[in-house]
Amino acid sequence: MKQHMRMQDKIILRLGAKFLVPFILLFAFYVQFHGDFGPGGGFQAGVIAAAAFVLYGLIFGLDTAQKVVPKSWLEKGMAIGVLVYGGTGVATMLLGGNFLEYDVLHHHNGQHYGIIAVEAGVGIAVTCTMTLLYYLFAERGRR
């Protein structure tokens, strides 16, 4: 993968990426929160959001990407995602139900709230893990 021109100098790639990244992120949020009604959910949304960060990192360089999303955020985000999932389970236990028994969250829409909380946890964990994986592989290459 020898490059004659630096990636930052390629104007079409730069403009294309600048144009696409916000839409990819918006689509990720759509997939995340529309997962109850159409195809989608936390896993897919997480991977799509990570793809936006990976595209940004590939075109504008790893340093710029790490200014936008620092590595320390991602390391914390990985754990926070799992904690949100587990925390939902603990919250239902504190409200008197079983682990992950969403019906106790709300008398009518408990299942909805539970599923949104759990999917948010999955989305955060997957986004952070996938972006971090890209950072680690790319960083290793420049040493």
């Binding site: 159409g38 959910g41 992950l100 299942q111 759990v118």
Partner: peptide
């Protein structure tokens, strides 16, 4: 919840 896959996955 219309998407059955989400229901089974999360609930």
């Amino acid at each position: 919840i219309p998407n059955v896959v989400t229901t089974v996955l999360a609930s």
